[in-house]
Design a protein around this nucleic acid. Structure first.
Lengths: 173, 173
DNA sequence: CGTGTCATGTAAGGAGTTACATGATTTG
DNA sequence: CAAATCATGTAACTCCTTACATGACACG
């Protein structure tokens, strides 16, 4: 699902500004779908032109004015279509696998370093996610919590998968 | 690792044409890194200009002439740098998780359909990969075989992860 | 005689990121 | 007094894909 789809889904829950959308995308769910301002603001503009959302300016004193976007019926229809269209199989480019593919060109030490370094990065990611668990358990609905659980397990599985390659490298298998 | 990096790695094993590179990228390792002709040919051109590879034209009779690319010392140095640079944590956009995130907006039936459909797609992918196992076990080196095993396990884990979400949806947990 | 394989290449488009510009107000 | 937060936006760039163009030979 692209930026437009994700934004529509968010706006279906409640009206929001681009800035707020960015905060949610950057929160605990960033691991499977993040977008920068450079994607969000142009997408909002485009969707307003297409009649999928409407904008209302909130004049503020002190802080800058906010543009609050609200989904329209047309937008709701569009989102339904997006949500029920065929699900794409995960597309990923794995830097780790790109290295593993060329491991024959590295020394044994270098190979192990890469694997260990990668495991550390995964475990750090997991720690970051766990640190945010309370926040999620408080705010998220059942399915969003399931997204989080899926993510945690995904990285745990990834780590175990790398560990298995390491086992072989270290001749412990 | 981008197209340039992957191509350099391939050329370090042996000299090749763009067409051959494409065939390898489209083979059993496409699941973690694929590139189209539209990436490969311009990358080869660029890298030749940068002195990372050299080209030698092979005149053929009948079939079209082939441009055989060979890595240079500069290219080898570059690839070493790429191979030993910090490994990026996997970056993926999961269409399935994007749906799950908005499951509250779907009926129970629709939710289950999405999960079942997704599991089918994963199992089909696994079947496709297994069908190519003999080819890989014959041609690939130890580490490339490990890439393949990693991929198989990755999709198995993915399936199990989706299955766990389904369990909850079906109230069997 | 159509389809597939061999073989190279380019132009246009897609979908994003990064970096910059602006500027007040709050927090440490 | 510096840095973070609030808030919006654009231009340039990256890196890739899709679709097209070209053309001969081999297979069934």
């Amino acid at each position: 699902m692209d930026a437009q789809g994700m934004i529509l889904g968010m706006l279906q829950r409640r009206s929001m500004t681009g800035y707020e959308l960015k905060k949610i995308f950057s929160s605990s769910f960033a691991f499977f779908s993040e977008f920068s301002f450079g994607s969000i603001y142009p997408a909002l503009k485009k969707m307003e032109q297409d009649g999928l959302i409407t904008m209302r300016m909130e004049i503020q004193h002190g802080t800058p004015n906010r543009k609050i976007y609200t989904i329209t019926d047309k937008g709701r229809d569009r989102f339904r279509m997006i949500l029920t269209s065929p699900v794409e199989l995960i597309s990923f480019r794995s830097d780790f696998l790109s290295r593993l593919f060329f491991f024959s060109q590295l020394s044994c030490e270098e190979r192990k370093d890469i694997c260990h370094g990668y495991r550390s990065a995964i475990l750090e990611k997991l720690a970051q996610m766990e640190a945010r668990r309370p926040e999620i358990e408080e705010k998220a609905d059942l399915f969003q919590l399931q997204c989080f659980e899926f993510g945690v397990r995904f990285f745990q599985d990834l780590d175990a998968n790398v560990a298995e390659r390491l086992n072989l490298l270290e001749g412990q298998l």
